[in-house]
Design a binder for these strands. Structure first.
Lengths: 248, 248
DNA sequence: GCCCATCCTTTCGCTCAGTGGAAGGACGTT
DNA sequence: AACGTCCTTCCACTGAGCGAAAGGATGGGC
């Protein structure tokens, strides 16, 4: 009378991956029951699969019973061809920008309706920065996100405008106001945010062109825009144009 | 009369992972049959599992039939806690070093009898550099490797000396000669290589201390050591000491 | 002390997902 | 036309995977 009632179409592989993909930037350590919940698996099943993932070197169990992604998976993940050319070309320009501004410098691309951070150079730690390389954030609340959205197909813009999540009191949640800002971004050639993602952090970003297309966005995070917005914009544009030229 | 003859102790999960771990720095793109060979699986089995890995977003099939690690796995891999504290602390010091030397700068730790590269800042591209972040190389043929070996337990040294693979004509393959060099590394406080890993590339490296232990190595790669060995050693030692102090 | 919650672990019999030999197809080389 | 290598599909057998249920372990509230 016993037996299984497993969801049809769910292979062991897909379940194993569901467990791995249960981790994200906000959940780098998960307990067994959290994993089971997030991967939508019965606890005993999760228990066995997680055990196998640990045995296979994909996860590590820490003292305390929390699981984290193993070093081995880090090594394998780094083999993925994620905008390799772009990142290589951008690196020296980002270094220069970082050296002259001392700000946090970001390189990001659009992935659906989110920004995907490809590269980051941390500035003096006084400014809080939430983004991490590999992490994704909504397009409407970040400088690089606004730039990417301003150059995205209409379809994407519509989709993004439909769900303007409030993150701080300053996050723009009115579609009309964001539309207006996107127009301004296209006209002025740069985007800004003022504490829309993180309190105490402002940002400036510009588009990285390749031919006539925009392939990425380059941005900096600073404590305030009052003083040197113009200088930052100029620096960013020099770097972005440099990257664009090197890509051609 | 048909049936299976699957290897005992091999779960689906372990096989899936074997397929993922079939990728390495020298094999970032693999065909189905290469995958099957490297993971030691029958072709039809590999075919099905790889299909599931693709469906699950862990692999991507490129036009031409080659598989590569998917972007999604890159994102998950980056969540692994791989010497996070060390890398964060080291970043600004590495930036400074990179700015003053214009050389390729490396941060690495020992993993068994290999060097694991944690961080890299590329210099002017004229010098060939094989290491990548996340990649591993033998300890005896790299600057950072020699430093790490010089401060490794005897057991590890013995193991490493037992297999001194020749990589270039200048690779040190005589145990006695390497032992002598390791003594010198401990005495002088730095290691060098001269085209022992890559023709046309030399390196200098120093230990990163944390308290009385060595936790990592910091190195630079340059086209030649003739001119500015002393300057490089000085720069490296300042940076390494800075990192060590910040870690305490 | 006792209860209840939440976590993790193990057991166990059913059954279907996983298995891989065999066969077939696509392409290129000799 | 005969061989090589690659990829794909088929299919009958079966043991690997399944998860409800039960059993521990721990911690907090009263």
């Amino acid at each position: 009378m016993a037996g299984n009632t497993s969801v049809p179409g769910a292979t062991v592989v897909s379940r194993g991956l569901a467990l791995l993909f249960a981790f994200d930037d906000a959940h780098r350590r998960l307990t067994l029951s959290e994993l089971a919940r997030r991967a939508d698996l019965p606890l005993p099943t999760a228990h066995r699969l997680v055990g196998e993932l640990v045995a296979g070197g994909a996860l590590v169990r820490r003292t305390g019973g929390e699981y984290v992604i193993a070093r081995r998976l880090w090594q394998v993940g780094l083999l993925a061809p994620v905008e390799t050319g772009l990142r290589e070309v951008a690196a020296p320009f980002m270094n220069d920008l970082h050296a002259t501004t001392r700000a946090t410098v970001h390189l990001a691309v659009r992935e659906g309706t989110e920004v995907l951070y490809l590269e980051r150079l941390s500035g003096r730690a006084s400014v809080p920065v939430v983004s991490t390389v590999g992490s994704r954030l909504p397009l409407h609340a970040t400088g690089v996100g606004k730039v990417l959205l301003a150059h995205a197909p209409d379809e994407v813009v519509t989709q993004a405008l439909a769900r303007l999540t409030r993150i701080t009191p300053y996050t723009i949640t009115q579609p009309a106001r964001l539309r207006e800002q996107l127009d301004r971004v296209r006209r002025d050639g740069y985007a800004t945010t003022v504490e829309e993602m993180t309190l105490g952090a402002c940002s400036v970003a510009v588009a990285v062109p390749a031919g006539s297309h925009v392939v990425a966005a380059l941005g900096v995070v600073v404590p305030s825009l009052k003083r040197d917005r113009a200088r930052l914009v100029a620096g960013l544009q020099v770097a972005a144009r440099g990257i664009g030229r090197s890509l051609a």
